[in-house]
Design a protein around this nucleic acid. Sequence first.
DNA 1: TGGCTATTTGGCAATAATACCAAATTAGGA
DNA 2: TCCTAATTTGGTATTATTGCCAAATAGCCA
Lengths: 105, 105
Amino acid sequence: MDEKTHARFEARAKIIKSLAHPTRLFIVNELAEGEKCVCELTEMIGADISTVSKHLSILKNAGVLKVRKDGTQMFYQLKTPCILNFFQCVERVLKETQKEHMEIL
Amino acid sequence: MDEKTHARFEARAKIIKSLAHPTRLFIVNELAEGEKCVCELTEMIGADISTVSKHLSILKNAGVLKVRKDGTQMFYQLKTPCILNFFQCVERVLKETQKEHMEIL
DNA sequence: TGGCTATTTGGCAATAATACCAAATTAGGA
DNA sequence: TCCTAATTTGGTATTATTGCCAAATAGCCA
């Protein structure tokens, strides 16, 4: 793989990597309904607020989320809602795997 | 986030995590054209064959790839081609980011 | 059987990701 | 201005991922 190709896939991997964490998937799923502030998400997730803030920053940095400031609050929202399409395929992969698991038993 | 919800997103994250690496994205991209053996992929990637084998195993384990044995060779192929849809959205995210980057300059 | 090829597995060192706490930053209201 | 609330940043210990080498495994063929 030449350097240019590697850089191409590196950039793509960065975006996918930003989604490769249960908390961050949860966040994306929640934001499907609309923007939410850090405090709302933190309460739902139940982790330290600094942890949630860092997860949000990773998603924003990858270009998946954008943010709107209102007073002291930061409202995060999906920047590219096509991300939600991922879930459908992931669901299909899971179903396939479960099906096979059943067949073995 | 209750335990059940966490497990739900953990399972989904595992699948996305399997794609969150440049080499593994490259593999998925190559297999879009059809099955390939470990040796072919290894030559294209230019890493140690054991490294490539482990990447393939991660993808297979996640339910993204399936494998067919033919003699001493193992042919890997996409199990759930909907994975390829990811690329479209990733491309869109990249384009958005680049556009903004241009606007700043 | 013995040798050869393709692939996987085990071990391990280097690097990256994660989560918490504490401290810094920012904005609003008394 | 001072206090408080919301959020981000810095620091750090813990855990996970990665890639190579060496060794093991599996299948073909002489």
